[in-house]
């Protein structure tokens, strides 16, 4: 016999069936399988967006240039395409880094550092959620935040146009709405992702409480931090694709 079966593995790391498939712990493998299923959901949503867009473009309909749709930044009325989304992307990447540093500290059983990096991850997640709230409210109510002017001030209507006031394909007049599918996909995809961020922050917070309470110190390893870390990195991973396929391409 060769491979795993012939190796001696410490009995306390074996699964219930007294083997340890792929030399990976049960919880981590199940988290990976969950993430694959979640990735299929997000993949399906982004492919559906591609379907709607390709069908519309082939039919000669207008599809908005995303970088011209959201051009706002807090505390200014300047025309700043992409900058705010770039800021959100950066926040998510940095919070992913603090998470991986928390996992690394966990491998050294450094409780203080784990708590420090995990707390920063929670803060990063909250900043991202707050940024998304601001983006959504600006989208819905317009840059001045006056929700009563929904009908004529909604950014999703106004900013379908180029800075020069001309349509990309010359099909529409000023003030005409773009395809509704665009706005629906925007709120559905970023909303679904935002919900994941929300639950991710929640998980991270619960695990942070456990770290501070010494649960994993007693258990002898910080694998729970690694498992919620997988989920958190997955959220960052999804955003990388949403950023590309919604704002850039």
């Amino acid at each position: 016999m060769s491979g795993e079966a012939s190796k001696t593995i410490e009995s306390k790391v074996l699964w219930g069936g007294k083997v340890s498939p792929f030399s990976i712990s049960y919880g981590k493998m199940m988290m990976w399988i969950f993430l694959v299923s979640d990735a299929l959901t997000f993949g399906g949503l982004l492919v559906a967006l591609g379907f709607a867009r390709h069908a519309a473009v082939t039919a000669g309909e207008f599809w908005p240039s995303s970088e011209q749709v959201f051009t706002h930044f807090p505390f200014t009325h300047a025309h700043l395409p992409l900058l705010y989304v770039a800021f959100m992307t950066f926040i998510l990447i940095i919070s992913s880094v603090t998470m991986v540093l928390a996992v690394e500290a966990g491998h050294r059983m450094d409780k203080k550092k784990v708590a420090f990096w995990l707390a920063l991850t929670v803060v990063g997640g909250l900043i991202f959620l707050g940024s998304q709230v601001w983006e959504w409210s600006t989208f819905i109510a317009g840059p001045d935040g006056d929700i009563t002017t929904w009908a004529d001030n909604a950014t999703l209507k106004q900013n379908f146009f180029l800075p020069t006031g001309e349509m990309v394909d010359g099909a529409a007049k000023l003030g005409q709405e773009g395809p509704h599918a665009y706005a629906m996909f925007f709120f559905f995809i970023t909303g679904f992702h935002g919900f994941h961020v929300f639950t991710g922050v929640l998980f991270n917070f619960i695990i942070l409480m456990n770290v501070l309470g010494g649960t994993y110190e007693k258990r002898g390893h910080y694998e729970m931090v690694e498992k919620v870390g997988l989920y958190w990195h997955f959220i960052d991973l999804v955003w990388v694709f949403v950023f590309t396929f919604y704002y850039l391409v």
Partner: peptide, 18 residues
């Protein structure tokens, strides 16, 4: 069973990983 594989590394390895 509360188990974990490859859940530890030394301080020197940590420097390299960081």
């Amino acid at each position: 069973i509360e188990y974990s594989l490859h859940a530890h590394h030394s301080a020197e390895e940590g420097v390299k990983i960081r």
